[in-house]
Simulated scan of single mutants.
Amino acid sequence: MLRRNFLLIALATSISRIGWAQSSSSRPIKIVVPFAPGGGNDVIARQLAKELSELRKQSVLVENKPGAGGNIGTEYVVRAPADEITLLLGHTGTVSINPALLNTGMDATRDLEPIALLASTSLVLVVAQDSKIKSVQNLIDLSNQRTIPFNYGSSGNGTGGHLTGELFKEVTGVKMSHIPYKGTSPALVDVAGGQLDFMFSVIPPAMALIQSGKLRAIAVTSKKRLSIFPEVPTIAESNIKSLNNFDSSVSYGVLSSNKISPAIAKELSSQILKIGGGPEFQSKLLAEGAVPALGNGAEYSKLIQAESKKWTTVIKKSGAVPD
């Protein structure tokens, strides 16, 4: 049904693109967050809305539309009327993973218009404080000595933590079994308690347990080290050939309905990138464990396509299915 809906939407929006002629300040701008309030997408969207409203002297509203792994909010933006500016605060999961994982038929660079790339963040590989696993190399060596697989947790099937684990398993050959949880926090508690061997976690919920000494961070999954964990190496720094290019970053960016006029898309892209380069916005990103990663619509589109290709391959090889 979702696949048929997206195909119909694509046809309808391609016809109505010609009719887009809204004033740049006549109506409020909507920024849709396809998740519940409080997460990384929501925090970034609200800071962007605040600064974009000030810059444009125009109302910018944030609307949370959670459900179906982000697809309800995404589809809402695809369907947005031609006389509105409706934006999506998207990330890797909603625009590059979900189409393959859920077989929606949606193509973010066809059914949406990438406007600007804003930021990226990493997952962190954590173990219990007293774990024998001290590094990525050590994890691989210990796996080679075991006859049973390690257990690793995630916040659910098809999530970033799950798929990052599948990617890691594919390129290293580590024996590991996935244990899905209903949320990140209970999985982290079981890592700290030794019921799970390790986990690839989003940073904010892991931070308190790392700082309290209950968890130990042994690597981050991005290409570069993070300023909040300067002493924690990247997985790619492990001096293991198969991991030299390992990267499981989560990218955040702004997309719109593909009915938007090129002139308004260009205007918004320039304004959003100006905000993204400012100290107030970057301070908010760093507090969320994210880093600035600015790019225009064309650059964001290229990244979406590359991430879609990578994660589609991982999903097919692993047989991952959503909850």
Rank of each mutant, 00 (worst) to 15 (best):
residue 316 K to R: 04
residue 13 T to K: 13
residue 242 S to L: 06
residue 254 V to Q: 00
residue 148 I to E: 15
residue 153 G to M: 10
residue 83 D to I: 12
residue 198 F to G: 10
residue 125 L to H: 08
residue 45 A to H: 02
residue 146 R to S: 12
residue 46 R to K: 10
residue 201 S to E: 02
residue 243 L to A: 03
residue 110 R to L: 01
residue 156 G to V: 06
residue 253 G to V: 04
residue 170 E to I: 05
residue 286 L to S: 15
residue 105 G to F: 02
residue 232 V to W: 14
residue 312 T to I: 09
residue 45 A to E: 00
residue 244 N to R: 09
residue 258 N to G: 04
residue 287 A to L: 15
residue 216 R to E: 11
residue 4 R to Q: 14
residue 154 S to M: 12
residue 243 L to D: 01
residue 11 L to S: 07
residue 206 A to S: 14
residue 167 L to V: 04
residue 31 I to V: 04
residue 225 R to N: 04
residue 226 L to R: 08
residue 58 Q to V: 06
residue 197 D to G: 12
residue 124 V to A: 00
residue 191 V to S: 08
residue 143 S to A: 13
residue 211 Q to D: 13
residue 175 K to Q: 10
residue 271 Q to H: 08
residue 207 M to F: 15
residue 58 Q to W: 01
residue 5 N to G: 08
residue 200 F to M: 09
residue 276 G to C: 12
residue 9 I to S: 10
residue 263 A to P: 02
residue 51 E to Y: 07
residue 40 G to T: 11
residue 31 I to N: 00
residue 203 I to C: 04
residue 146 R to F: 03
residue 292 P to C: 11
residue 120 S to Q: 15
residue 184 T to R: 06
residue 90 G to W: 00
residue 203 I to R: 02
residue 167 L to C: 03
residue 57 K to M: 07
residue 246 F to K: 00
residue 226 L to F: 09
residue 65 K to N: 11
residue 61 L to H: 08
residue 20 W to H: 15
residue 214 K to P: 09
residue 52 L to P: 00
residue 4 R to G: 09
residue 15 I to K: 08
residue 182 K to V: 08
residue 245 N to V: 01
residue 130 D to I: 11
residue 240 I to C: 07
residue 102 L to H: 07
residue 246 F to Y: 09
residue 44 I to H: 04
residue 60 V to G: 06
residue 222 S to I: 09
residue 43 V to K: 10
residue 179 I to F: 14
residue 43 V to C: 06
residue 16 S to Q: 12
residue 168 F to C: 04
residue 115 I to D: 07
residue 79 R to H: 04
residue 263 A to I: 11
residue 190 D to S: 15
residue 31 I to H: 00
residue 258 N to L: 05
residue 232 V to I: 15
residue 269 S to N: 07
residue 223 K to P: 02
residue 5 N to R: 13
residue 29 I to K: 00
residue 121 T to W: 06
residue 194 G to L: 13
residue 44 I to S: 04
residue 198 F to Y: 14
residue 161 G to W: 02
residue 126 V to I: 04
residue 120 S to I: 13
residue 72 I to K: 06
residue 124 V to Q: 00
residue 58 Q to M: 12
residue 22 Q to G: 06
residue 222 S to T: 12
residue 160 G to F: 00
residue 207 M to K: 15
residue 93 G to Q: 00
residue 132 K to D: 15
residue 298 A to F: 05
residue 216 R to W: 02
residue 77 V to D: 07
residue 1 M to K: 13
residue 308 S to C: 07
